[in-house]
Nucleic acid binder design. Structure first.
Lengths: 165, 165
DNA sequence: CCGTTGTTTTGATGTAATCAAAACAATTGG
DNA sequence: CCAATTGTTTTGATTACATCAAAACAACGG
């Protein structure tokens, strides 16, 4: 009789032991060399998705001092072309990065505090939203950004209105 | 018996005589002072929608030499807050401007030649695409950019493939 | 463990846009 | 029609974000 407790199965064991190895594997299997700055950026991105290069630089530098901002840009560029991260460029914001790739999900951004949340694709298929041929264009992707007030800012807006009647 | 020929009705006559006055009126009725740089920017924008500040600067300078680039930025900013123009900021591009405002239409951009076309709203209502409350957000607008190959670039891509078989 | 190849550092450069102060021009009210 | 007010434009500096290039360096395949 073999145990089926998920904590002790093969995948679980590897996962527990690997620890940082998981990140290394994903980098290597994307065809890239595994380096300390790359691990650090990927780790930072896991903790704080929708971060910009500068915020990632801050996080990376704190556990790998001596890393340059340009290295972070370089890492993000290589991750981007390798398909490891996705770059989003909302109006009025520096570029943001996230590890969730492959599905084409969208984003909702608070106009007041700029917090970003993922939103599943409106339709569910790759170039979500129907038009696959519009005005003679061969449409490959649909990028959607919703703008609005997040829950916290809705409350703040209400209490502010009370302060200034 | 009064004529009802639209060419001679009051509005039509005013329109024909006004010529440039149409632009001036739209500026003034937006609560802004009418100035030569503003008229020139609005005129340029009528000719070339989806232009960036620099392209508009080029057009403006050619019929109103001495205008500064900063003036163009200033004009565009005031037009933006006055609701006279809309600013779009596609990923990887400087901001583009257009006079079509009020309806919330979207855009389709060629990934090869960067040409921009208007696309009517996917649903037809203001924050097009259903979600008016997502993840606790109060959604106010949905911004959609389609990316693909324009008709001309589709043809070019085909002939290039023939060149490099 | 060495060589190749790709990555990071260092430092310069570029683009798009914004800011601030002084000169100037459009409107409003007399 | 003129003067005062208010808003706009010019001029020049400055910022934010990002990219480029060369030399130093590190990963990985043999």
């Amino acid at each position: 009789m073999t145990t089926t407790d998920p904590r002790y199965d093969d995948a679980g064991l590897r996962l527990a032991v690997a620890d940082e190895g998981v990140l290394a594997v994903s980098i290597r299997s994307a065809g890239l060399k595994v380096t300390a700055p790359r691990l650090a950026v990927l780790r930072a991105l896991a903790d704080m998705p929708h971060s910009n290069a500068d915020a990632l630089f801050g996080a990376v530098r704190s556990d790998l001092p001596g890393t340059s901002l340009q290295a972070v840009y370089g890492v993000l560029a290589s991750f981007g072309t390798a398909g490891l991260v996705r770059k989003i460029e909302p109006a009025g914001s520096p570029a943001l990065f996230e590890r969730r790739v492959g599905d084409n999900h969208h984003h909702i951004i608070c106009t007041r505090c700029s917090v970003v949340n993922d939103v599943d694709c409106a339709v569910g298929h790759a170039p979500c939203l129907t038009p696959s041929e519009v005005l003679g264009f061969d449409v490959r992707a649909a990028e959607v950004i919703y703008w609005g007030l997040c829950a916290a800012c809705r409350l703040d807006a209400v209490s502010e209105a009370a302060d200034h009647p």
